Amino acid sequence: MKRILDPLDERILAELTANARIAHAELGAKVNLSRNAVRQRIERLERDGAIQGYTVRVGEGRRPTSLITSVIFVYRYDRMRGDEVLATLRSIPEITHCEVLSGEFDLMLRVEAASPERVHLVWKEIAAMPGVENTVTSFVLAVVI
């Protein structure tokens, strides 16, 4: 049975979202509970599925070695006035290269993501941009040079 989170649970989740490595004693001080009470609540949140795991955010210049690489070719409606597309692409961290092309497509993007599902979400974001007419996506199978 799903349990409704109370405001204290919500505060604990907010603090853990900001810093999943926070010590129980420090978290307890922030939410006005004892270390043991915080530990018990976290265990319940995990058991009930409100917390489904913990993750690592990799800092600048440090990339995981097992990334999925894909190339997305983008055709814009208007090549000459597509600056808003470029500005939005700069805000997507998985895009590691963006090159302007001659020929059929306007842009070639290199996307490095942790999973194929994340590549799909990036592709959906790009395809939904105003100014993007079409895309073609290919996954990199091997790097030979």
Rank of each mutant, 00 (worst) to 15 (best):
Lys2Cys: 07
Lys2Gly: 11
Leu5Met: 15
Leu5Ile: 13
Pro7Thr: 12
Glu10Asn: 10
Arg11Trp: 03
Arg11Leu: 13
Leu13Ser: 13
Leu16Gln: 05
Leu16Gly: 07
Ala20Leu: 07
Ala23Pro: 00
His24Gln: 00
His24Arg: 07
Ala25Phe: 07
Ala25Glu: 15
Ala29Val: 00
Lys30Thr: 02
Arg35Trp: 01
Val38Ile: 08
Gln40Asp: 07
Arg41His: 05
Ile42Ala: 04
Ala50Ser: 13
Ala50Asp: 13
Ile51Val: 10
Gly53Ser: 06
Tyr54Phe: 14
Val56Gly: 02
Val56His: 05
Arg57Lys: 04
Val58Met: 11
Gly59Val: 11
Gly59Lys: 14
Pro64Glu: 00
Pro64Arg: 03
Ile68Gln: 08
Thr69Tyr: 08
Ile72Asp: 05
Phe73Glu: 10
Val74Gly: 12
Tyr75Gln: 15
Met80Thr: 13
Arg81Ala: 13
Arg81Val: 04
Gly82Ala: 15
Glu84Lys: 13
Ala87Asn: 11
Thr88Tyr: 06
Thr88Phe: 08
Leu89Ile: 12
Arg90Ala: 10
Ser91Val: 05
Ile92Met: 06
Ile92Phe: 05
Pro93Lys: 02
Pro93Cys: 02
Glu94Ala: 10
Glu94Met: 01
Glu94Leu: 02
Ile95Tyr: 00
Thr96Ala: 09
His97Ala: 11
His97Thr: 11
Leu101Arg: 15
Leu101Val: 08
Ser102Ile: 03
Glu104Pro: 03
Leu107Gln: 04
Leu109Trp: 06
Leu109Asn: 06
Arg110Asp: 09
Val111Tyr: 01
Ala113Gln: 02
Glu117Asn: 09
Val119Thr: 14
His120Gly: 14
His120Val: 00
His120Glu: 12
Val122Ala: 05
Ile126Ala: 03
Ala128Met: 06
Gly131Ser: 08
Glu133Ala: 13
Asn134Gly: 05
Val136Tyr: 04
Val136Asp: 03
Thr137Pro: 02
Thr137Phe: 00
Thr137Met: 01
Phe139Ala: 14
Phe139Gly: 08
Val140Asp: 02
Ala142Ser: 13
Ala142Gln: 10
Val144Lys: 10
